[in-house]
């Protein structure tokens, strides 16, 4: 199937943080990866990013109140 669901208007932009970015991000908030919200590894919106468990996914949501908000989710095995 050639359908690219990531163009769907309900799905915000997902991108994977590199290891360096991930370390910097976790340091800046002084949190452990376990305290992040989760996303399943087989989530349809991130399959093309080929994530592994423990990655951090950056999500750029379009928000009605703030324009664009950035959200992070940690990849977990389902």
């Amino acid at each position: 199937m050639t359908l690219d669901i990531n163009k769907h208007h309900l799905i915000p932009k997902h991108s994977k943080l590199s290891d360096a970015e991930k370390g910097k991000f976790l340091d800046s908030y002084k949190i452990d990866i376990k305290s992040l919200p989760k996303i399943l590894i087989e989530d349809p919106a991130i399959v093309n990013l080929k994530p592994t468990a423990g990655d951090v996914i950056k999500i750029e949501r379009e928000s009605k109140t703030a324009g664009i908000t950035i959200y992070y989710r940690a990849v977990i095995n389902g």
């Binding site: 769907h8 309900l10 919106a45 949501r61």
Partner: peptide, 27 residues
């Protein structure tokens, strides 16, 4: 395929993922 939606949150979750489900709940 960029605008077509269902009103079943579970279906959206299965087809489009968790972030789409969140947006669908709000909508």
């Amino acid at each position: 395929s960029t605008r077509t939606v269902s009103n079943d949150i579970y279906e959206i979750y299965n087809v489009l993922g968790i972030e789409a489900a969140r947006q669908a709940i709000i909508d």
